[in-house]
Design a protein around this nucleic acid. Structure first.
Length: 606
RNA sequence: GCGGGUGUAGCUUAGUGGUAAAGUUCCAGCCUUCCAAGCUGGCCAUGUGGGUUCGAUUCCCACCACCCGCUCCA
């Protein structure tokens, strides 16, 4: 398979993934299917380890996060409430000259005179074409400007475009049409009339039930998060948690991407690890604690405090997530960060920090440094999501807080008015932005503000949302390294060593008899293997020479290899029942009693 | 979706309008007292479908997949 030469490292990684059984193309024997990938034996272990570490760290080791496992297909109204039906169904229009696409509803209005052409022919090559095109000539622009664009357009696919004679194309049927004002039909960059608007719905559609009519339409979830919001009240009522607390979920999501790209980085079926961490609105914090704690915008703010508002919680989760990545071998140098600007943020979002990984295919900035691709976004989403589901389902999503009610009663009137007003303004902004008519919005916002005084509010949410498959690719790219060695005969060869952090490595330990043709070594090795395999992923190998087995494990990324030799059997009595442990990254060996193996390994691989 | 590039064993590469070649990996055996040693044997390929032709892996067309750009996002 000929790979492009742009990213030779990426080529090697893709090749290794197939060769060693990390990642295969889905349905390969049928020619594959665009945007879908399978995990082979090593990839499956790697992915399982990553998800397990996330889940354990998120839920089992925390007091304030519980888990959820929801279905992939849910009531389609969920996707109306979440906004996915609308935002995932954008109409796009394409510029026939630049091939760039713009959202039909976001074309910058242009004014000027449309010039129509009906075709062109070449005196030089005799080539001719008949196609209609309209180019907008902005006020004050010379007519040649439009002609040049038209020639460029007609030259696409012509012989003259190859010879460079395209600018001599003779245009036909030039007519200046009536001037237009604020037209959205022309590409702002090129001035060329945009193609017809076509819908780009990125949600996978399916039908529930055998009749398959339009009434039965449902969607494969494009993200796992919405189920968490939809089940928020059920979880709250059953898990004995109080805000602030979080709900975590790992699972598949589906997006009908326009262009799946970069190996598994953008797939149509992918897996997410998402946490929705519900917090009190700042007005509630201030009512109860008198102030809202502030924390620096970088660094870990320490153990959570009761008076943390959204900003502190957001910063807390950004740093918690970075710590997670560091804990599985992605150092800060390999990561990048992007704090979304107010323009990039959704209208309901307060802040969003993206954690990036610098892939070989990542773009570079002006300084030539890799920028990175998004592994995870940590968003402060206000109370938007629960509010949406409250509006769409008609079911209340607010929580009651005894502390708030008590505290509220002790506030002086000025403070009450101030907090109440701030909450009112926030609710009003949300409601009007959501298209609720002005009068009703004011009425509902007033009701929300009154409820606040009674101890009730809709929680805000901090959402760390990570892509598992992207992370796997990052770990693979990060682990990839080569070592070139030259043997006695001067023959040099390059070996691949996958330097996975032991915590994520698919195979934790390889177990070998030094020699295969000595039954007593084999028997002892099998015995050691059997004692380890229940504790962790262990791999027994007696094929080929010992060096070859080490090399094989290096390529799989196995951090430790245990070898049973004659000393294990007591050739040197003082070494009876000891084995060598060989370290992957430097080939270093040490000797350890078999009895200490489980503890020694467990301390390093979990 | 549009434009550009690429498709030969698991991998890396030869090659040809007339039986598809090699290295490596892998499997089996022998041998081997710690980093892809050696010997013997073995398995495996022209992405799919059409067309031209006596004959196509080679030439043509379509499709599929992969890579790059536009676009989008976890």
């Amino acid at each position: 398979m000929a790979e492009p030469k742009e990213h030779p490292l990426m080529e090697k990684i893709v090749s290794l993934c197939k060769r060693r059984g990390f990642i295969f193309q889905s349905s390969e024997i049928y020619g594959g299917i665009n945007g879908f990938w399978d995990y082979g034996p090593l990839g499956a272990e790697l992915k399982r380890n990553v998800k397990e570490l996330w889940w354990t760290g998120m839920t089992r080791k925390r007091d304030d996060v519980v888990g959820l496992e929801a279905t992939i297909i849910m009531a389609p109204q969920i996707w109306r409430a979440s906004g996915h039906v609308d935002t995932f169904a954008d109409l796009m229009r394409e510029c026939p000259l630049t091939k760039k696409r713009v959202r039909a509803d976001q074309v910058e209005p242009q004014s000027g005179t449309p010039i129509r052409f009906t075709g062109a022919d070449s005196k030089i090559s005799g080539w001719k074409v008949e196609r209609n095109i309209r180019v907008l000539l902005s006020n004050g622009e010379h007519i040649e400007h439009a002609r040049r664009k038209a020639r460029e357009f007609f030259a696409i696919g012509s012989v003259d475009s190859k010879t460079g004679d395209w600018y001599q194309l003779e245009l036909k049927g030039e007519i200046a049409e009536a001037p237009v004002v604020d037209s959205v039909d022309f590409h702002p960059e090129s001035g060329v009339e945009l193609g017809e608007a076509r819908p780009f719905n990125l949600m996978f559609k399916t039908y529930v039930g055998p009749t398959a009519t339009e009434d039965d339409v449902a969607y494969l979830r494009p993200e796992t998060a919405q189920a968490i919001f939809a089940q928020f009240k059920n979880v709250l009522e059953t898990c004995r948690q109080k805000v602030p607390f979080g709900i975590a979920q790992v699972g598949k999501a589906f997006r009908n991407e326009v262009t799946p790209r970069n190996f598994t980085f953008r797939s149509r079926e992918f897996e997410q690890m998402e946490l929705e961490f519900f917090i009190k609105p700042d007005e509630v914090i201030e009512a109860i604690y008198g102030n809202v704690a502030t924390v620096p915008e970088t660094g870990h703010p320490g153990e959570p405090l009761p008076n943390w508002g959204w900003q502190a919680w957001h910063q807390y989760w950004v740093d918690e997530r970075v710590r997670f990545y560091e804990g599985i071998g992605l150092s800060r140098q390999t990561l990048g960060f992007h704090r979304q600007t107010p323009v990039e943020l959704a209208h309901y979002a307060r802040a969003c920090v993206d954690i990036l990984f610098k892939f070989p295919f990542s773009k570079r900035n002006e300084q030539g440094e890799l920028i990175g691709e998004e592994l995870e976004g940590i968003a402060a989403r206000s109370d938007f999501d629960l509010s949406q589901h409250e509006r769409f389902s008609g079911k209340p999503m607010g929580v009651f807080d005894e502390d708030l009610r008590t505290a509220w009663g002790k506030l002086d009137e000025t403070k009450k008015a101030e907090l109440s007003n701030r909450y009112y303004e926030a609710r009003l902004k949300y409601l009007t932005k959501s298209g609720v008519e002005v009068e009703k919005a004011a009425r509902d916002a007033k009701e929300d503000a009154d409820n606040l005084a009674k101890g009730q509010y809709i929680p805000h949410v901090i959402e760390p949302s990570a892509g598992v498959d992207r992370l796997i690719l990052a770990l693979v790219a990060n682990a990839y390294s080569e070592a070139t060695s030259t043997d006695d005969k001067g023959k040099s060869e390059t070996r691949v060593i996958m330097k996975f952090h032991p915590r994520v490595a698919p195979i934790k330990v390889g177990v070998f008899p030094l020699l295969k043709n000595k039954p007593e070594l084999v028997a002892k090795a099998r015995e050691v293997f059997q004692s380890l395999r229940g504790l962790m992923m262990a791999f027994y190998d007696d094929g080929g020479a010992i060096g070859r087995r080490y090399a094989r494990q290096d390529e799989a990324g196995t951090p430790f290899c245990v070898t049973i030799d004659f000393d294990t059997l007591g050739e040197k009595p003082e070494l009876l029942n000891t084995v060598t442990i060989r370290h992957r990254d430097d080939g270093r060996q040490e000797r350890l009693p078999i009895s200490e193996l489980p503890g020694w390994l467990t301390a390093r691989v979990f």
